[in-house]
Amino acid sequence: MIVLDPFGDNYINYLGNQGEAYSTPARAAFRGLFGPLFDLLLAVAISLLLWRTRSPASLPFLLLGSYALFHESVAMIVGVIEGPPGDWSRVVSGIPPGVVILLALLMLAAACLWMLQLLPLVGIQYRDSFWRKLVVLQAGIPLLALCGVIYQALSSERVSQIFDLVASAVLVTIIVALHKPLYNRLKKISITPTAQLRWRDALTAIALAAAIVIVQLAFFNAPTAMMVMR
C-alpha cells in the first residue's frame, strides 16, 4: 500500500512477509534502490523529452527531473550519514560511503544546473536582483516544506519536515547566489530564452499542484488507504 502525504511522510506499507522481503542483502539493496532508480529514470526521461520544446506551460514537467535529482541526492547523503532505515542505507552496505557521497554531490550539481537553466522560463534573467530571484525560488520547495511543518504542528503529529525546510531553503539560496557567476558557463551548455509570462501558465501550474495535492490527500493518505484495503 502506497501512502503519500503532500505535507507529511511518504512510505510503503508492506503487507506481506517483511522478513522475506529483506532476507538477503541483495534483496534489501534491490528494494532500497528500485524506488530512487525508478524515480530518476522516469522523471529525467520525461523532462528530457520535453526539453527541446521548453516553455512556461511545460515547466511543471521540466522541473520533474531536477527535483528527482535533488531529493534523491539529498536522500543518499542523509542515508549514508544517518544509516537505517533509509533506502540508501541498505544499498551502501557494500559500497564505500565516499563513493555514494561523491555520486550524490554530482547529482546535486546536475540538479542545480538544471534548475538554473529553467529560470528564464519563469521570466528570471541573470541581471535580475538577488532578492527577486530568491523570492521566486523560495516559493518552491521551501514553501511546500513550510506548509508541511505548519500542517504537522497543527495536527499534533511528529514534525518531521524541519530538515526539509532548512535544507531546501539553503539549497535554493545557493542556487540563486550561483546564477550570476555561472551565467556564461550556462550559456555554453544550452540557451533558454527568457519567457513572456502569462497568467494562463501560472494558473495552470497552480491547478496542477492543487490537483496532485487533492489526489494524494484523497486516495493515498493513510486512513483512506486503510479503508480501501478492507
Partner: peptide, 14 residues
C-alpha cells in the same frame, strides 16, 4: 513568476 514557480515546483516534487 512566483505563482508559476510555486505551482510547477509543488507538482513536480510531489
Amino acid at each position: 513568476a512566483t505563482l508559476l514557480f510555486m505551482g510547477a515546483s509543488f507538482f513536480a516534487y510531489l
